[in-house]
């Protein structure tokens, strides 16, 4: 599984340009699904048929990651950029950017006070000596990602874009463990989550599921002087109560808790004071879809070094498998 996580997190997929990731996943799920298709927004929809009396369950993990878009190339070949998704300025200076063709650049700042640092005082140096040279590598309007390799620390793993390739990995691994599920499962590898839960919205409209569950990362509060948050690495799958996009449907929350209890899956309850997941879009689809989120506790979210614990990941996989095989008749 670590191999899959390494491949997924090192892939290139800024919001709107996720094809490399969805193609990779297509390869990984080959042979395990009954149907694989892509929609207009680029969502990859992997179907696993259940029994006729089963319910339609949509699981969503997003393939896109935060990044940058080039807005200007100056006469000396330096790039200016805007953010794609929620990018913290504090994580950028000295960090590297990678473009689709492999071009690497370093982000640095104009002179000035750290406290007043804003995105428009930063630039990217791709080593070009002139505008013309820069233009052979990068164009204005091109999308890039933060460049960083995967690291295996034992139980804990660090990588860029754990948000939300780790959710993708959970779904892929769960799919491999599911043979004949009770419910018909739609594993949707969504696009454009980081810019407003967009892919999940159109995918859910097309699928119109009975139950929606997002797999995504959540923050933790177990670091030195961290913001107060009662989720820790290594304490199991986090079952979301609320975030800015969703108040988990009481029945979905109860179902997840009960499945953890009966299957001995470690879990913790999660209240996230801001942020959202694809479940926020799914639950407002058509006349409403009862929805919830299974979160993978993650430190340093939206930095190029996001950390997860493999035991939490395993708990999330087990929980997805449990939902897949659960008889939901009369519940949803």
């Amino acid at each position: 599984m670590k191999e899959i996580i390494a491949q997924l997190t090192e892939a290139f997929g800024p919001s709107g340009y996720e094809t490399e990731v969805t193609d990779m996943i297509k390869g990984m799920v080959e042979g395990y699904a009954d149907e694989v298709r892509t929609d207009v927004l680029g969502n990859l929809i992997v179907v696993k048929n259940g029994s006729p009396e089963g319910k339609k369950v949509m699981f969503a993990a997003h393939t896109d990651e935060i990044g940058v878009v080039v807005t200007h190339i100056d006469d000396k070949g330096f790039l200016r950029f805007a953010n794609i998704g929620g990018v913290g300025v504090a994580t950028l200076v000295g960090n590297r950017v990678r473009f689709a063709n492999g071009t690497i650049g370093v982000i640095y700042q104009e002179k000035g006070d750290w406290k007043e640092l804003t995105l428009d005082k930063l630039y990217i140096d791709i080593g070009a000596e002139s505008k013309d040279e820069a233009l052979t590598k990068v164009r204005v309007g091109e999308f890039g990602i933060f460049h960083r390799e995967f690291a295996d620390l034992g139980n804990r793993l660090i990588a860029k874009s754990m948000d939300d390739r780790i959710g993708c990995a959970v779904l892929i691994e769960a799919l491999k463990k599911i043979d004949k599920p009770t419910n018909t499962l739609y594993f949707v590898f969504t696009t454009q989550e980081e810019v407003g839960l967009r892919g999940a919205r159109t995918a859910a409209f097309g699928l119109d599921p009975d139950l929606g569950i997002a797999l995504d990362v959540t923050l933790t509060g177990d670091m030195p002087e961290a913001r107060r948050m009662d989720v820790s690495l290594g304490k199991g799958a986090a079952i979301k109560v609320k975030d800015s996009s969703l108040i988990a449907h009481p029945k979905v929350k109860e179902l997840l808790v009960q499945l953890c209890e009966t299957n001995g899956i470690p879990y913790q309850m999660e209240v996230l004071e801001f942020g959202g997941t694809d479940a926020g879009a799914i639950h407002l689809t058509k006349a409403g879809v009862p929805s919830g989120t299974i979160s993978i506790p993650t430190r340093y979210v939206h930095s190029p070094s996001e950390m997860v614990d493999i035991r939490d990941v395993q708990a999330c996989i087990d929980l997805v498998v449990a939902v897949s095989n659960q008889d939901l008749t009369g519940v949803f």
């Binding site: 108040i247 639950h283 407002l284 689809t285 058509k286 006349a287 409403g288």
Partner: peptide, 13 residues
């Protein structure tokens, strides 16, 4: 109070 959510889905229905 958290974003007009019930009205979105009930109106659709």
């Amino acid at each position: 109070e958290v974003g007009l959510r019930g009205a979105v889905t009930s109106t659709y229905g």
